[in-house]
């Protein structure tokens, strides 16, 4: 059975042209399997977010190939005009801040994407409540984001990322704004989600303390992506 969820081959991303051409990624190739939590690390400005945005069908690569699940979505050009539909149906996004829509309550935030995908209100709300219950904030379903704590909002944001039953979750520094304890909680939660929901998760992080919690590390070196083993568990974990 094919466990591959993300496959990238010879991905190249350049900005600018001619003398002002900047190579950010030059020939990145890697795979991420279902149920895997993979950390993506690199120094600032090395292209982590750019790589994440290319896999998330937001930023168009210069060349290369991207598979999401069994579907080849990019081969030197987008193979579909509906990149936003791919994001809506296959990908969940988690950000550094929760970025919930402030004028929707938690339940509406979580059900927005599934309902846009055509899932009925009743069905999407039932699943959303399951997710909120999973993250222990079911009682906050009708609350507005402004009335919740940072941690509760971040959990709601993760629930939103899962609401469309994605194949892939792309997390851009989800622990950057959290203290160590909460960071560990969030990463452990992501690991649990990867296993429970059988999704592939790529997590951009600067926090080396989180690396032992991941299954694998993807490191951007010399504009290429190198896969490495995770370090042994730190004493703080």
């Amino acid at each position: 059975m094919n466990r591959q969820s993300i496959k990238v081959e010879n991905l190249v991303k350049n900005f600018g042209k001619g003398d002002s051409l900047v190579e950010v990624i030059n020939g990145a190739s890697f795979e991420v399997n279902k149920g895997e939590l993979v950390a993506l690390i690199a120094p600032s400005g090395a292209g982590k977010t750019t790589l994440l945005m290319m896999i998330g069908c937001v930023e168009e690569p210069t060349s290369g190939t991207i598979w999401l699940g069994d579907e080849k979505v990019y081969e030197n050009r987008w193979l579909t005009k509906e990149t936003r539909k791919i994001r809506r149906e296959k990908i969940g996004f988690i950000f550094q801040a929760h970025y919930l829509i402030p004028f929707l309550n938690i339940l509406e935030n979580v059900t927005l994407v599934p309902q846009t995908n055509g899932v009925s209100k009743k069905e999407s709300e039932a699943f959303a409540r399951e997710l909120l219950d999973y993250f222990d904030i079911e009682d906050k379903a009708e609350s507005m984001p402004s009335s919740l704590s940072g941690g509760q909002n971040q959990r709601a944001a993760i629930a939103r990322a899962l609401a469309n039953k994605p194949q892939i979750i792309l997390a851009d520094e989800p622990t950057a704004a959290l203290d160590l304890k909460r960071s560990v909680d969030v990463v452990k939660m992501l690991k649990k989600i990867a296993l429970d929901q059988d999704v592939a998760i790529i997590m951009v992080t600067h926090d080396e303390a989180m690396l032992p919690l991941c299954d694998r590390i993807l490191k951007i070196e010399n504009k290429k992506v190198v896969s490495t083993e995770v370090p042994k568990k730190s004493h703080i974990l």
């Binding site: 998330g56 937001v58 936003r84 539909k85 994001r87 809506r88 149906e89 990908i91 829509i101 469309n164």
Partner: peptide, 16 residues
């Protein structure tokens, strides 16, 4: 604009 960018990122169509 931030919310609109997020909505576009998570796949909400322009029409909506």
């Amino acid at each position: 604009m931030k919310e609109i960018a997020i909505m576009k990122l998570i796949g909400i169509p322009n029409s909506m």
